[in-house]
Amino acid sequence: MSDQNDPELTQAPARKALGQHFLFDPSILHRAATAAGPLDGRTVIEVGPGPGGLTRAILKEGAAKLIAVETDPRFASALQDWPEARDGRLMVIEKDARKVKWETILAEAGAETPAMIIANLPYNVGTILLIDWLKAGAWRGEMALMFQKEVAQRICADPGTEHYGRLAVLAHAVTRPHIAFTLPPGAFKPPPKVDSAVAVLEPLPESEQFPHLDKLEQVAGAAFGQRRKMLRAGLKPFAKKHGLKAEDWLKDLGIDPTARAETLTQEEFRRMAASLVK
């Protein structure tokens, strides 16, 4: 296991503009690498490897192919010099992860799927990437992703709880999410201003996954955009755009028009989204 003094880890300052906060503790890196399950023989995607601490932990745990996407040329260049990059086990892509066509990259790499995604995500792009991955097809397997703690709580929240919202609705539509462990700011260099947490998202069986995530995202976004209002009022503009009267639409679906978004179950959100599929 690599540590802070490992010469293979690039020693360069974090850039605030890129949302970088680095981990060097070997025990934490091991926990993050293995949080979603065994890596032996698997394809793994890592976003924002930075100095390479988590990269080293993933490789040590037996990943057959690791695709590391890094937008910072300082770190991407250094990772290209690793022995695993030269022998083809580590594939380094210098690019903004938001612009990567994941299926194309996996095909070009000749990688086995489904691919695991394990990452200490840059704070400024984590949620965007997660939604992209939730909407992905069968190529995406288990995910272990480090976020700000509050974001992780929003991903894993159950109905009726403080953090329940759009992210939780989307995450529960295709995965079984939970928080594996939390970390204080002092675990990182530089330390962020908030606690962090690793969220593990295990794919639901295909028969249990909701296929229309775009519609589900629209419905959940509209409902939680007016979360203090009853559904019949909060969803009125949204329903009108779809040629519907909110109260009648909700009643027809067996949903209480006087309820609020935070009380709705995954099944009720699915019903609303499914009714909009042409």
Rank of each mutant, 00 (worst) to 15 (best):
W102G: 07
R271F: 04
E142N: 11
I131N: 03
A144N: 05
D40R: 13
A64Y: 15
A239D: 03
A246R: 12
R270Q: 11
T265R: 04
W139P: 07
A14N: 12
T43M: 06
V44H: 01
H21N: 15
A199R: 04
F75I: 01
A220H: 11
H178D: 08
L170Q: 00
E267A: 14
R176A: 09
E84I: 14
A259E: 14
W82H: 11
Q148K: 08
R140S: 08
A197F: 05
G110R: 03
A144T: 12
L23Q: 06
R270T: 06
E70H: 12
L170R: 04
I105R: 05
S196G: 00
I93Q: 10
G165T: 00
R31V: 00
T265S: 14
V151C: 15
S2E: 06
L253H: 06
L170D: 06
T113M: 01
A261T: 09
A223G: 10
P13K: 07
R74P: 15
G88P: 05
P51N: 12
M91K: 04
V174D: 05
V200F: 06
I131V: 10
C156P: 12
D6R: 08
G52C: 11
Q266E: 02
L231E: 05
K135T: 03
F75Q: 01
G19M: 14
L244Q: 06
M116C: 00
L39C: 04
S2V: 07
T71C: 11
M1I: 15
K240T: 08
A97F: 01
L231S: 12
D132K: 03
G141Q: 07
I105T: 14
P211A: 14
T175M: 11
E103Q: 01
L121I: 10
E94D: 10
Q148C: 07
C156R: 12
L183I: 13
E84V: 14
H21M: 02
P184F: 06
V92R: 14
V200Q: 01
K229A: 04
T55A: 08
W139V: 13
G234D: 03
G50F: 10
E150S: 08
E202G: 02
K236G: 05
T43C: 09
T71W: 07
L201H: 02
A68L: 02
V277L: 11
R154T: 01
H212P: 10
L231N: 11
K193W: 08
H212M: 02
L18C: 04
W82I: 05
N124V: 02
P38K: 04
